[in-house]
């Protein structure tokens, strides 16, 4: 479980996060949603330690993440996997080398064991056989799956995904969403996904937090989205009149 306690972040005079209190649960797909500029990416960066909060605390279970020493931080990094918006695969390495990279850095496993783990992860994301290809030789959707394989290779306790569906078609997005969700369940991982994709919200949103102008304005799960009377959430999810009409007809039924 990850908790944030009164997390604030300011850049010069601009306050981006205004004291967030959030809980992200184990074995659940926790979604941070909100419009562009709402502070989602800043929050995610604070959660993974790429950015320090101006005030407030982040807890990983019983450990105060924001107060860890460098050594402790390195240890906790081994429990963290992250899928980046653009996959962030290293261009000079093959798919296999990309996935093995975290193990080469942290693990004392033998070459054979590492290879077995790489093969398992590739199989898990349904990408067997692309081991020797370079990132530039595979599609965007495949790159995302390689990114997922790399993020789970060290069997993390915490998985962070920054806009995992950006740039993907709806069908591929669904595959990625389901993959993240099933990995979360299988390994009881605390997964935090930063997204503004409505399909993801309705498909895998088990614990959703809506950020608006640096505040959490709504929390709930996907079943509550359709019946919400929160105006900000309505404006965000059902941005087009067509979707709003569709929702109304669905709720009436």
């Amino acid at each position: 479980m990850i908790r944030t306690e009164h997390v604030k972040k300011s850049f010069d005079d601009k306050q981006v996060l205004k004291g967030l209190n959030l809980t992200f649960y184990d074995g659940k797909t926790n979604l941070i949603i909100g419009r562009s500029g709402a502070g989602k990416t800043v929050l995610l960066k604070i959660l993974v330690g790429l950015m320090a909060p101006t005030a407030g605390k982040v807890w990983y279970g019983e450990r105060e993440f924001t107060a860890l020493s460098k050594k402790e931080l390195r240890a906790i990094r081994m429990e963290v996997g992250m899928l980046f918006q653009g996959s962030a695969l290293f261009d000079s390495m093959t798919v296999e080398e990309n996935i093995r990279f975290p193990m080469d850095m942290f693990s004392n496993k033998s070459t054979k064991e590492k290879q077995m783990r790489v093969d398992y992860c590739l199989e898990r994301v349904e990408l067997s056989g692309v081991n020797k290809k370079f990132p530039s030789e595979i599609s965007g959707g495949m790159q995302k799956r390689v990114g997922i394989a790399r993020s789970i290779v060290l069997e993390p306790k915490y998985l962070f995904c920054d806009e995992p569906n950006s740039g993907l078609d709806p069908k591929t997005s669904l595959v990625i969403d389901k993959l993240i969700s099933s990995i979360t369940k299988e390994n009881n991982i605390t997964t935090v996904i930063n997204t503004h994709d409505m399909n993801s919200v309705m498909e895998i949103g088990e614990n959703i937090a809506l950020l608006h102008e640096g505040n959490v304005v709504w929390t709930g799960d996907k079943s509550e989205v359709l019946t919400t009377d929160n105006e900000t959430l309505e404006n965000f999810i059902f941005a087009s009149p067509f979707l709003l009409k569709l929702r109304d007809s669905f709720v009436k039924k």
């Binding site: 330690g49 081994m78 992250m82 962030a88 942290f106």
Partner: peptide
């Protein structure tokens, strides 16, 4: 390029 494509951030998260 690595910095802009978040490769550096990815390495940081991996504890590199």
């Amino acid at each position: 390029g690595m910095q802009q494509k978040e490769h550096v951030a990815a390495m940081e998260i991996m504890g590199v």
